[in-house]
């Protein structure tokens, strides 16, 4: 404690001594430029977010009557747009969560299994390499290229018929789109999850795995008791990444659920049409909606932030 105090005291007296040396001679031109540059970049990145936030609290006349980044004044301030956006997006939030959470968890788990198989199992490398190559190739397939095959595939699979018991329970059969989204996102997320986990497992101590083998654990038990508990940081990375990807994806929802009038419409579909009408755009409503749609991804970042930093560092 006393050490801290002394260090702090030292720094303070040093800087004050430097400042009192002469107001002009102490100024370092390079530093001034550096800080000006940094401030400029900060403003550049923050102004769009700030503008969106203040706009979402303005009345329609407030939006047209003031600069985008100016905060709302007394008369133009309203919480009504947030209320309206929440009313419109509420069911979309639930629908999105219904497929984004399972798809994220399943793709992360399967990616972890697959990566464990192609790193720690004692298959010969010549068998592992082609499988890894397939996974890597999967990462580079653009979504746009698979949209048509994807919709054809789902029109051939009799998913709706085979899930008949769900609809007989009173669930709207539009929700078959949610199931399709889960399977599709798991399939397209699996390659990147596998590759991320693979690099993590490659760095895991080989001797530790060997010690577990000699301790009598089977390959499945080693995963359960050693590898999985140690995968926390990489799960944070993959969960955040996958959740953001799946939550924000519009393309697959357009193909598989198609309309915002569907009972199963995800938030991105509803958001796309929110505040747009023949009379023009309701910018405040759109901004409020965008922030509501972004909240879950933000929550996931905050929840796994610490592990995320650890996972990215390794």
């Amino acid at each position: 404690m006393s050490d801290d105090a002394r260090t702090d005291g030292g720094t303070v007296s040093e800087t004050s001594a430097g400042a009192s040396d002469g107001a002009l001679s102490g100024v370092d031109g390079y530093r001034v430029l550096l800080y000006l540059g940094l401030l400029g970049m900060l403003a550049f990145f923050l102004i769009p977010i700030e503008s969106g936030l203040v706009t979402s609290f303005k009345t329609s006349s407030g939006v047209t009557g003031s600069l985008p980044f100016a905060p709302p004044t007394g008369a133009t301030f309203t919480l009504g747009k947030w209320q309206a956006a929440f009313d419109a997006l509420g069911r979309g939030l639930v629908n999105s969560a219904l497929y984004a959470i399972p798809a994220t968890v399943i793709s992360a788990l399967l990616g972890s299994f697959a990566a464990y198989g192609i790193t720690q199992s004692d298959w010969k490398p010549k068998y592992k390499a082609p499988i890894l190559a397939l996974f890597v190739a999967g990462i580079f397939i653009p979504y746009q290229a698979v949209l048509v095959p994807l919709s054809q595939f789902w029109s051939m699979v009799p998913l709706e018929e085979s899930l008949g018991f769900l609809w007989s329970l009173g669930i709207n059969d539009d929700y078959v789109g949610i199931v399709e989204l889960i399977v599709t996102h798991v399939a397209y997320g699996l390659p990147i999850c596998t590759v991320l986990f693979r690099s993590y497992y490659k760095n895991m101590s080989e001797e530790m795995i060997e010690a577990a083998r000699l301790d009598g654990a089977s390959i499945r038990r080693i995963y359960r008791r050693i590898v999985l508990p140690l995968s926390g940081p990489m799960f944070a990375v993959v969960l955040i990444y996958q959740f953001t990807q799946i939550w924000n994806d519009l393309l697959f929802t357009l193909v598989l659920v198609q309309t915002e009038s569907s009972a199963a419409a995800p938030i991105v579909l509803i958001l796309a049409g929110l505040g747009t009408s023949l009379e023009g755009q309701d910018f405040a409503l759109r901004m409020a909606g965008a922030f509501i749609a972004a909240l879950p991804t933000l929550a996931v970042y905050i929840a796994f932030g610490e592990e995320f930093a650890e996972g990215v560092a390794t």
Binding site: E207, E210, I226
Partner: peptide, 28 residues
């Protein structure tokens, strides 16, 4: 290896970092 009834001590010790000493020793 898991059926050989052999115990090995590694240069890096290869302890399981997420387990306590007790759990490390009980694992085998």
């Amino acid at each position: 290896p898991q059926h050989r009834d052999i115990a090995m001590v590694f240069q890096s010790y290869a302890l399981y970092p997420h387990m306590t000493v007790r759990e490390n020793m009980a694992f085998g």
